[in-house]
Structures are given as C-alpha cells and as structure tokens.
C-alpha cells in the first residue's frame, strides 16, 4: 500500500524507473529466474518461437504496406531539368540541412566523417563500467545525454526540417504554406569579423582564425575544468589525455553545429572565419 501511495502519476513511474540503479536491476533479473543458476533457458523453443512470431508479424506488415502504398516513379531522368528544390534521400537530409550553416567541405565531408569516427571510438572513450547490459539512466547520465543531443536532437530534428519544412530555394515553408518558387528572402547575412568592425581582409581573416582557434582552446580547457569538477581529478587521470582530447574535440565539433545554427538563424551571421582557402 505504501508503494502505491508513492507512485501516483506517470511522471512518478518514469522517475522511479530512472532512479533504479545497477544493484536493483540485477536483483530483479535474478528474482525472475527460478533458482540459482537458472537464469538460462533453451533457445529452442523459447527464442526461436519469439523470433518466428516477430518474423511473421513484420512480414505481414511489410506485405500490407507494399500492397497499399506504391513506390514513387517520377518523370524519366532529365539531366538538364533541375527540380527546385533538389533533395537528397531523406536519411541524408540532416546533412543537407547543415549546408545552410556550413560550407560543403565541412557539412558534407568532414562532419559525416567525424560522426562515423565518433561512433566507432565510442566504446573506447566510454570507460564507465556501469550500465553494461541493462537499461538505466542513473548510471550513465552523461553518455545518454550526449547521445540524445547528437542523435535525437541534431540528426533526427534536422531530417524532419529538411524533409517537411524546406521548399524551393531551400527556403523555409510551413506545411500549410504554398511552395512559392519566387519567394524573396532578404540576403542580410554578414560575416562575424564584419560585424565586429573589421574591414581589412587580412585582419578579418586573423580575427576569424582567433575566434575559431579560441573556441577550441577555451572549449577544451572549459571541458577539462568541468569534468575535473564533476568527476574528480582521479577520474581524469584514469581517463587519460588521449581519451579526453578525442572526446572533447568531437564534442566541441558537435556543439559548433548548434552554435552556427543559432548564429545563422538568430543573428544572420554567415561565416565566423573567412580565408582564401576555407571559410567556417
């Protein structure tokens, strides 16, 4: 009874689920087993049956879907007639959307490479031994928050924007607006050095370089300080400089996407750094 009083709303249920830690999870699984050493069951029939039922259900679903909805086939290819807008396949639209904030060499090549490399090094960066093999938020707050930020917020939200909210000229159209291919959008973007009063080309470039370099230097220092504060010096020593450096570099690159998104959408700033070779 006492328990049912504590947990009243769905929010409480969620909170309770999030608070469960390592020890309790393990206990629960063990309780479900019938006795010591009885945590294992036979693959046949238990797992094979579950797989088979899942297989049938999904196959039926795919059949119905394919019977009801036809795959698109448009006009024959015409290399001289460019549609407006031209959109990449939906799963790449997040990257195409980032083209609004970054030049193609960064949005289309460097960032995707960082995403792939970042995913690959994840198991080697994350040295938290807890939370292996069960769902638990409390044991791995930072890992989960970062993943949610990168995957759910950036990747998925940008795909939704690119798919549903971008029309001709890659301009923003709400779903209830008509796609007007003559929509005029004032091009009032300026570069950050210009905004700060720099008019000389070389000085602007140097200023931009200082801002970008400063971002990474100060950002890394800040992360170092925050992590030592939150987790202690002992953790930082165990983690090691190579892991920390890689993690903070990738993390800062991810945050940079958000920063440029805000700068561009909120303040019409196009580039932070302009040089004859690359612009950022």
């Amino acid at each position: 009874m006492a328990e049912s009083k504590q947990i009243k709303t769905m929010v409480d249920v969620g909170k309770a689920a999030l608070q469960v830690s390592d020890g309790e999870r393990v206990e629960k699984t063990l309780l479900r087993a019938k006795g010591p050493g009885d945590d294992k069951i036979h693959t046949w029939p238990h797992l094979v049956r579950a797989e088979f039922l899942c297989f049938l259900a999904v196959l039926a679903f795919m059949l119905v879907w394919s019977l009801l909805v036809d795959a698109p086939l448009e006009q024959p290819a015409a290399p001289t007639r460019t549609p407006n807008p031209s959109k990449a396949p939906w799963y790449f639209l997040g990257l195409q959307e980032i083209l609004v904030f970054f030049d193609p060499w960064h949005a289309g090549v460097v960032l995707p490479s960082f995403i792939i490399v970042g995913l690959m090094v994840l198991p080697f960066i994350d040295i938290n031994p807890k939370g292996n093999g069960y769902f638990c938020y409390a044991d791995r707050k930072w890992e989960i928050l970062t993943f949610f930020g990168g995957f759910h917020f950036l990747w998925i939200v940008l795909i939704v924007v690119g798919t549903f909210l971008r029309g001709p000229g890659w301009n923003w159209f709400w779903p209830w607006e008509v796609w007007d291919s003559h929509k005029v959008v004032a091009m009032s973007n300026v570069d950050l050095p210009y905004l700060f009063g720099f008019r000389d080309y070389t000085l602007s470039a140097l200023f931009g370089l200082a801002v970008v370099g400063g971002y990474f230097v100060i950002g890394t220092a800040l992360m170092y300080w925050l992590i030592v504060r939150a987790k202690g010096r002992e953790f930082m020593e165990r983690w090691g400089m190579a892991r920390f450096g890689l993690a903070s570099f990738l993390f800062l690159n991810m945050i940079a996407v958000v920063i440029k998104l805000v700068m561009r959408m909120g303040f019409n700033i196009k580039y932070i750094m302009v040089t004859p070779w690359i612009n950022i």
Binding site: E74, A77, K87, P89, D103, P104, V109, W277
Partner: peptide, 26 residues
C-alpha cells in the same frame, strides 16, 4: 527518374568539396 538522379546528384555533389580530393574543395 527525376527523383533518383537529382537526389543522387545532390547527395554526391558533396564529394567535389572534399578537401584535397574534390575540385571545389579547399
């Protein structure tokens, strides 16, 4: 069709901006 060649064009155009390896890249 139109859908396919333009989606692939847009998706592959990034490659020409690859630093060092693309003709429009840094």
């Amino acid at each position: 069709d139109q859908l396919s060649i333009w989606a692939v064009t847009v998706g592959s155009n990034m490659a020409r901006a690859t630093p060092l390896l693309g003709h429009e890249g840094p």
